[in-house]
């Protein structure tokens, strides 16, 4: 784990390490935000992204399953979740919708809609080396 005033990097190597990551996420967010509700929301959105990153990650030698980078800038907390694995379609999925996701719910696929409902923006990029990068941004009011 690397940490300075406004940046934090965490390598997560499986579900068992998510609990420890949660504490680090909470500590980071609490440092910049005083709203318990916003901290809760950030924690849930980031952990959801990390959980899915681990779930769909392909194991590589000497590489962690999921890499999380947290930063604070311009009254926003940004989380970048990186994994190596199959590409996924973030932009095609909307925020969670009562009509689409609740009343017509089948099975699975709620991760991105949930994250989009919780934060201000979600961006995705696929790198040429086969890694996925999910960028989550949440504005905060101290």
């Amino acid at each position: 784990m690397e940490n300075n005033n406004t940046n934090l990097k965490i390598c997560i190597n499986g579900f068992a390490e998510l609990e420890q990551a949660r504490e680090s996420i909470l500590n980071f967010c609490s440092h910049y935000c005083r709203s318990d509700e916003v901290i809760d929301i950030l924690e849930m959105a980031i952990l959801e992204a990390c959980h899915n990153a681990i779930l769909y990650s392909t194991k590589r030698k000497n590489k962690s399953l999921c890499e999380l980078k947290l930063s604070f800038d311009n009254q926003s907390i940004k989380a970048i979740v990186i994994n190596y694995g199959k590409a996924f379609k973030v932009l095609e999925k909307e925020s969670f919708s009562i009509e689409q996701d609740f009343l017509q719910y089948k099975n699975g696929g709620l991760g991105i809609p949930l994250i989009k409902s919780l934060v201000d923006s979600v961006e995705y990029s696929r790198r040429s080396d086969g890694t996925n990068e999910l960028i989550i941004l949440k504005k905060i009011n101290k």
């Binding site: 849930m44 952990l47 959980h51 996701d101 609740f102 699975g108 709620l110």
Partner: peptide, 16 residues
């Protein structure tokens, strides 16, 4: 102690 999309899906499926 921990709630995410899996739990949300389980609730929605149970409700419907």
């Amino acid at each position: 102690t921990w709630f995410g999309s899996t739990g949300l899906g389980a609730l929605l499926a149970s409700y419907t």
